[in-house]
Every structure is written in structure tokens, then in C-alpha cells.
Design a protein around this nucleic acid. Structure first.
Lengths: 86, 86, 86, 86
DNA sequence: ACGTTTGCGCTTTAGC
DNA sequence: GCTAAAGCGCAAACGT
């Protein structure tokens, strides 16, 4: 039986949609894992709320560092320097 | 040298924090993957916006089905029936 | 004594913050009022839980109507019609 | 025409429901006002995100103070002291 | 009075 | 960069 044009397209679209749905499922799983870790930490006497603050702080610090590094790299490139911090 | 009390706690806390940070990283990776799929679909001529609508619709339908199934199970349990749809 | 630059800014910021805090207080007051109404209704023999369901239902209906109206307006605009329901 | 029993009840119920709905409307208005204040602050160069943090901090401080005051009052009462901080 | 469950507001994230 | 939407934590409310 011949494969009508449009059928392939439908299959392809279906494939894309299902790939996204699969990834969303995975993401949900990870979110659940995160909740589990906080719950476990809490049962060990740590305050989840404060932990979140700490994590946010570390993330911010990392972002700042990344940004400074990017500026530094830009300057090095502008000056024709090989990057000494590699 | 002995391990002072409090040090273990610090290590444990650090472990929890890093586990969360690792999971957040994974989640970010998945988000990127999702974006990639949409980009690929778009380059194949599919409209990402409409795809999102379709996915949302499918999710909603799945939720409704899940809900109906839950009600059905409740009724079966109430009637002392083994669940024929298992 | 002169008013140093930066002091005005601090005052302005303080003003914004306090306005928000005042509004949050008002909101809390309203929430308390709502609780009072439910309590009064309950003491008159009405079931708060069912009342909440009714209110939610009415809200949902209103939202749906609003949404339909938005779609209608969109169509009117698309067709270059002045909106007859204004 | 006589007023059947139950009609008064219906009116009363309707009154309660509408009072709640009215309060919910007011609350929504306040929420909008809060958004407006943040928007205005932003247009004056203040960062709403940081403002929120500041407000949360102040609230926390106020709560702590309130809590300490409550404990203090309790102790005063337990010791038969009139509360010197009134 | 406590634990469970639902609704609300906030935060964060993604798209435009 | 801004605006809209989804996910999350939190708090109040109901049942035990």
C-alpha cells in the first residue's frame, strides 16, 4: 500500500510532539527528585527554606563569576591576548 | 585528627545542597532539549505555538481521563469489584 | 541643613515600600472580613464549604463568559466591525 | 402573594454569597494597586524584585518582634507584673 | 487539636 | 526587556 503524502508529515509531527511530552515527563521526575531531597534534608533537621536561600545565593554568585569571566575573556580577545586563565 | 561534631553535619548539608544543584542542572538540560525539539520541528515547517497548544490539549485530555479513571476505581472499590480495566 | 542627594531617593523608596505594606495590610483585613462572613453564614445554618463551591462556580462561569467575550471582540476587530455589544 | 418559607433563606444565602464576592473583588483591586505601586517604583528606577525581598525581610522582622513581645507578655503575666512596655 | 487537602500568591521561566 | 504562564511553597480550611 502506498504511503500518501501527508501521512509522513503526520508521523513526523507526532514524533516531535511525543519527544516533547517525553522530555516534560522527565522534567517532572526531576522536580519530584528535588522535592525528595528537600524532604530528606528536612527529616535530618535542615530547614528547606533556608537551604533554598543558600542555593539561590550560590547560583547568583556563580552567575556573577561567569559574567566577570565573560568580560575578562572579551578584554583578552580585544587585546589579542591568549587567555591566561584557561 | 578526630572529626569534630558539626563537621559531619556541615558535610551532610553540603551533600544535600549539591544534590539539589545537580538536579537543577539536569532540569536545565532538559529544558534546553525541549527548546531544541521545537526548533527542529519549526525548521521542518511546523508551528511551535500550535504544537504547544496540541500538547496542552493532550495533557488536559490525559488529566481528564486519569480523573475519570480514579472515579471509576472508587466506584469499583465501593462495590467490592475487582477492577476489570486493570 | 541641606538635603543630600540620595536622601531623597531613600525617602522615595521608603514611601513605595510603605505603600505596599499598607496595601498588604488592607488585603489581610479583607481576608479577615471574608472569614467573618463565612462564620456568620455558618452560624445561620449555611455550609461554608458548599458556599465556597457555589462562589467558585459563579466565578468560573464569569471567567468563561469573559473569555468568550474576548474571542467575540477579537472576531469583531478582525472583521472591522464596531462592537455592537459595547 | 405570601412569602413561602425558604424564600427568605434563599435571599439570606444570596446576600452572604454576594458579600463574599464583593470582598473578593476588593481584594483583587488591592492586588492591582500593589502591582501599580511596584510598576511606579520601577519607572523611578527601583528594582521590584529587590523591593519584594526588602518587604519580606521587614515582615519577618516584624513577626519576630511580635513573637518576642508575646513571650514577654506571657512572662509578665506569669510573674504578676503589669506590662511595663505598654 | 492535628493531619490532610484544597486554594492563593509568589517566583521563576519561556516566549515575543 | 517585558509580559504572560506554569510550578511551587504556604496558609487556611475541612475532617478525624
Amino acid at each position: 500500500m502506498a504511503d500518501p503524502i501527508g501521512n509522513n508529515a503526520a508521523e513526523q509531527l507526532r514524533s516531535f510532539v511525543e519527544r516533547v511530552e517525553r522530555l516534560v515527563e522527565e522534567r517532572k521526575g526531576i522536580n519530584d527528585d528535588i522535592k525528595d531531597v528537600f524532604a530528606e534534608a528536612k527529616s535530618n533537621g535542615y530547614d528547606p527554606k533556608i537551604m533554598r536561600k543558600v542555593i539561590a545565593e550560590r547560583k547568583l554568585a556563580a552567575d556573577v563569576r561567569r559574567e566577570q569571566r565573560a568580560v575578562f575573556d572579551t578584554y583578552c580577545a580585544a587585546l589579542g591576548l591568549s587567555d591566561v586563565l584557561d
